[in-house]
Amino acid sequence: MKMRGIIKAALKEQRKILSESEAKRLLRALKVPVAPYGVVKEAEEACKVAQRLGYPVVLKVISPDITHKTEAGGVCIDIADEEALKRAWMEMVLRVAHKRPGARIEGFIVEKMIKKGVEVIIGAIRDEQFGPVVMFGTGGIAVELFRDVSYRLAPASLETAQEMIREPRGFVLLNGYRGAPPCDTKGLAHTVVKVSELLCNLDELEAVEINPLMVYEHGVMAVDAKATLS
């Protein structure tokens, strides 16, 4: 099984934190759409990948020492062309070295800059008393600021997932706010179900999180993913 393979590889290297690309492979195995990307080591290679994906692109650092990439200066979005990409590359190397001295840089992710949707977070954790629990919340920063989230014990049924999605106040954003078409809440609910099942099926997994997941009128797409092992 693909997912076990990913986890085994990390355990073999005695890693507790999966890389972004590993976490995204877990999602792909669950058939959750992921923004197209390539993993590269050299700037030249980055340009080739960007060419293939099509501009604009996003550049992200890969480092086992960095979990929150944005804070470490390891994310650059909306890169318009090859020249800008090369510049972003140089700047990022310097910035990360400055903000996180000693962090190992193993490479970079070049990712297609996908179109804006409604940002949500889906996470699952293993709780010492309640076992696997799934969380849903709306809107990037609002999640941390207002804790506008809902929880259920995992696994969640499709019906439960649909309930969860409606609970946060931010649901209005998904439901056709200010004349926008309503989002694909059914596709979103299916994704919540899949994430909720993940921890129930993989005992070594301690937590997993998609943040953000873009929700569109039709379909969803994961932009960033994290996973940790116990």
Partner: peptide, 11 residues
């Protein structure tokens, strides 16, 4: 929970 993810720190 000792976790680096938001999901853990929010709950």
């Amino acid at each position: 929970r000792a976790t680096t993810l938001h999901t853990g720190s929010i709950a």
